[in-house]
Design a binder for these strands. Sequence first.
RNA 1: GUCCCCAUCGUCUAGAGGCCCAGGACGUCGCCCUUUCACGGCGACAACGCGAGUUCGAAUCUCGCUGGGGACGCCA
Length: 454
Amino acid sequence: MEMITRFAPSPTGFLHIGGARTALFNWLLARHYGGKFLLRIEDTDRERSTPEAVDAIFSGLKWLGIDWDEEPVFQSSRLDRHVELAKKLVAERKAYHCYCSAEELSSMRQEAKSRGKSPRYDRRWRDRDPADAPAGIQPVIRLKVPLEGTTILQDVVQGTVDVANDQLDDMILVRSDGTPTFMLSVVADDHDMGVTHVIRGDDHLTNTFRHIQIYNAFNWNVPQYGHIPLIHGADGAKLSKRHGALGIEAYRDMGYLPEAVCNCLLRLGWSHGDDEIIPQDQAIQWFTTDNLGKSASQLDFAKLLNLNGYYMREADDQRLLEELLPLVGNVSDEIRQRLLRGMNGLKQRSKTLLELRDLSYIYINPPPDSKLDLDSRVVWGIIIQVLEFEENWSEENLEKELRTAAAENGFTFARVAQVLRSVLSDRKITPSVFDMLVSFGKNESLQRMRAAFR
RNA sequence: GUCCCCAUCGUCUAGAGGCCCAGGACGUCGCCCUUUCACGGCGACAACGCGAGUUCGAAUCUCGCUGGGGACGCCA
């Protein structure tokens, strides 16, 4: 049987790091087994769902290199189907109408709580005669959950977990306004979409028992679940939009490469021995549910940065140039060429695209002159002029040009070297230029330059 | 409060009874390479939450405790 996985976010905000990881795992699983990865937008909470959030999810996934099969399903388009299914359960006496008001329910919960019990619905309408229905009240539809026994979940991550049925509520399937709830919709959609495997955050673990009850009521096959631990913030609490959870696009804006973010996410809760650097194609080969961890983790920015540095160094120069150009605005063709030539040196010193941008500054603009005296600024200007105007920067003529320019302006080459050194040791943005300079000279012209530097 | 889950270096993790007085990676700190920065190389520091069992032997199994997290909505 073909494996079908899915990612089913609700579009109430950006795609955050936890969601991205969930998507990644489901995607990897499907790709590993040659199955399908589907996307479903759970937009039934019309209050909070926005089209912007839908776009953010699509673009976030695309950026990460996660593609999906078939058209995304919008849950809101399937409401009729869900309600119809609920009505069928009512007809089969597996579900029933409940006429409790919101106030009634909350006082019920209050009371249960004060007696140290779970705040739950007391099932007062479960077996009541529908003829008792009060007039003018729109009922909800509730599922009849078995009063006894246990519900057992075979989770691919958590192992066997069971819960006593009396812990489960007779949950609401259809609201009094006639719309289906999340509980019903997920189950119905997963079933209709043919989903065979669901990897999701373990905040859904307890919901799963309810989902299983719904599957049972319909006599449907329950998919394989894998509940992965949540990613925690630095304070150890669940990552939420309230504290520091960033949208995936924030990582892009900080200059991270998608492959680095993916690699980092992958290693959060999944491992393959001692392997750390795992490009996407390798991940597809290796990823199975077997190596998923059971304990919560935190995202380590230092590690992300390190990983990003690695992928920066590995990245193709031309590609980096294309990533860089939007960050530096309009530059001439000449500068573009110059950047490309310098890219190899530049990228080795950049852990993010933002750092690459900062390092590139000197290729695009004259250097700032804050730390130099007037004389030195002039010399530095000469150096920059040479860099600006010398087309090929070949090893022979670089030094020659520097000498000539220095002489023309009444400076010795030693003075040029001195300024060069002082600027370089002083300025974070300059080492790449220095590297560029010395990289030309593997021969005697470098030797002479060296001598001048000492 | 009730139910559920989790627990190895600061962080991410390896480890499925002897291979572990616990390995890798990031970070930190040294040293080396280098005319600078970075890269790279070498090394150091650093963890099995606690307590009982089971066993010849436990990071690995069991129980308890503690700690952390999650769920208990006509939200998803």
